[in-house]
Design a protein around this nucleic acid. Structure first.
Lengths: 195, 195, 195, 195
DNA sequence: TATGAATGAGAGTTCATTCAT
DNA sequence: TATGAATGAACTCTCATTCAT
């Protein structure tokens, strides 16, 4: 563990924070760089001392999101009780993606990734890591007979993530319904995985 | 069945078609009205004879999407075999939302609905109708003992839609995985619904 | 002679006039599009209805300059008295390139042509036409024994143009000297061409 | 000959070299100070420890160009064979101004001099010195009967310089033609100067 | 001497919309 | 219905320069 040779300038984080606030409120394309620097309390030109451009800010945010996933990935990867780990993951990841800020930012990044290769790169890498970790947990559970093992674990992992993330997305437009049954999803999925 | 008192001007459909093409390729905000009229082969000003503005085109498209849902809704509503109907719905609706054009347009409309009340209105109405129809099918199946009935049917309906639509969305970035197991989703969901 | 199928919008000429005025006063790169539209009395956006961009205006101006050369080229091409024609050309072309507006615009276009292919294209074409016409006149004079004919006429044509245009350029910085001897150049060149 | 009391900081020359490289490639106005410091390998702020600003660099370059002219001026001024000296000057100065780096830098300085008094100052002084020296040589040749003497020597000097420099300029856009007849210019001019 | 963050005016261009024809 | 010129605010980004360290 050596000292970071490239410490992040505090101003850079202020810019990111201001950008996130604006992206959440107005969306990426509806946010102007002037909105960001105005909120960050810096001059327009100074933004370009810290980021190559507006797009680079979103890439940076996507990378930060990727780091937040690492907590989930780490725990999925090192388990000796796949069923309990999956239950925990469903509960906590559902809560994570249902946080409006995460859901909103996520969909901004996802839609931008659809046409912007720079964003797609980061976004795709993050997703692949999470899918692989979750599939690993399912495989482990399949081998030990806890889960049904006839289906490709990666496909199941995708479905689980789709369900959780889809629910997070939906919570943006129908906030009332989402918290009705926070654990319904878990029991539903675990039921579907019964051997 | 009477004749439509407000026949749609063919030019209007040409505009919509041009708009859809552009929205799919570049996204709603990245598409300019000049792109649309250019592709439609009409003049800039003439667009405003058919639509109040750019937003109105997206609203119109969202309404068309809603009509396409009616086929699904109708069949979900009038069934005497909930299990077979659900199986059909999962297969066909999964295929529908996995068509790139539907998935892409859907996410464009969804993200716009997040901040644009006019779009949110149409989008929310469409979704509510589908959820209600699917929940009705589940309720019917619950009463006749085909499905587990302990969970709120609306919540289950949401989860099913989330899973299917989430998979459609994912197919945009990972097209390879999506068609690996088209029926895996169905068996997974039906398994989860076992009483 | 058919009617022009693409009549030039009067506004386009107003823009060009405003642009020329500004380019003369401040130079091409020192002139902003806002300067141009301000002087032309039109809105900023409207400029882009008539020109693709700032560069296109300079290309258009270069093309107009090319048309003005046609008068010289025509007369050089159709002569039966090469000596008198050359004398006329020297006098009149020297006067033409010594007009500050022509000299200034010319150097703006020339320097821009050095690095801008779009400008270089038009500029190079114009120059080639003039060189060819002048060389043709010299060739004709060489055949009839009026001029020395041992040197490549194109090289001589270049030298003559260099001298005249160089003098025009110089008149910009040293206006006092240029009109001292307007005919000195002519006699100098004709002397040099003696067989 | 005493030691220079103000030795030039080596960093200053590095900056000038980087600036020249950029001015040649992109032109003065198209070159940013960031381009210069980047190429020079120094920091942005440090440039201002050596030069008052961007303009001061161009002034400095113009002054260096002036020093290079001194070789020509010295030899023109101290001759006892005006014809041979003129012949040498035409050959060598033509070669000097035809070097792309000299021609390009020269036109950059000239065009900037048209509107920038600080540059015009240095540029005009240099030119005046060269004109005076060349005119002196012509006067001397006129008195001794080697050259025609009826024309103002300064005007002839200007014409000669125009021709040579104009040819240098032209060589930038038509490099093929220029080296066809390197001595044609000399014989042409000397022919024109015959008494 | 050296650094690079900070400034804010200004760059060229695009935007959705209006309106006279 | 159809046209495209006209509008001006908004867009992202670059500019030469200053200044605290």
């Amino acid at each position: 563990m050596s000292a970071d040779p490239h410490p992040i300038h505090p101003r850079k984080l202020e810019i990111v924070h201001a950008a996130v606030t604006n992206f959440l409120e107005k969306g990426y394309h509806q946010t102007g760089v002037r909105d960001i620097v105005g909120q960050a309390g810096i001059s327009l030109g100074n933004l370009y001392n810290h980021f190559k451009g507006k797009e680079a800010i979103l890439v940076f945010i996507a990378e930060i999101e990727g780091q937040e996933l690492s907590d989930f990935i780490d725990r999925l990867s090192s388990t000796d009780d796949p069923r309990a780990t999956l239950q925990w993951f469903i509960t906590d990841y559902a809560a994570y993606v249902a946080l409006p800020e995460n859901a909103l930012l996520g969909v901004e990044i996802l839609t931008e990734a659809l046409r912007n290769p720079a964003i797609a790169d980061v976004f795709g890498r993050n997703r692949d890591r999470l899918i692989a970790a979750l599939a690993g947990c399912l495989t482990q559970g399949g081998k030990s007979g806890v889960f049904a093992s006839q289906i490709d674990p990666r496909v199941v992992a995708c479905m689980i993530l789709d369900t959780l993330e889809g629910q997070g997305l939906r919570s943006l437009s129908l906030p009332a319904h989402s918290n009705l049954a926070p654990d319904a999803i878990g029991s539903f999925i675990l039921n579907g995985l019964k051997p």
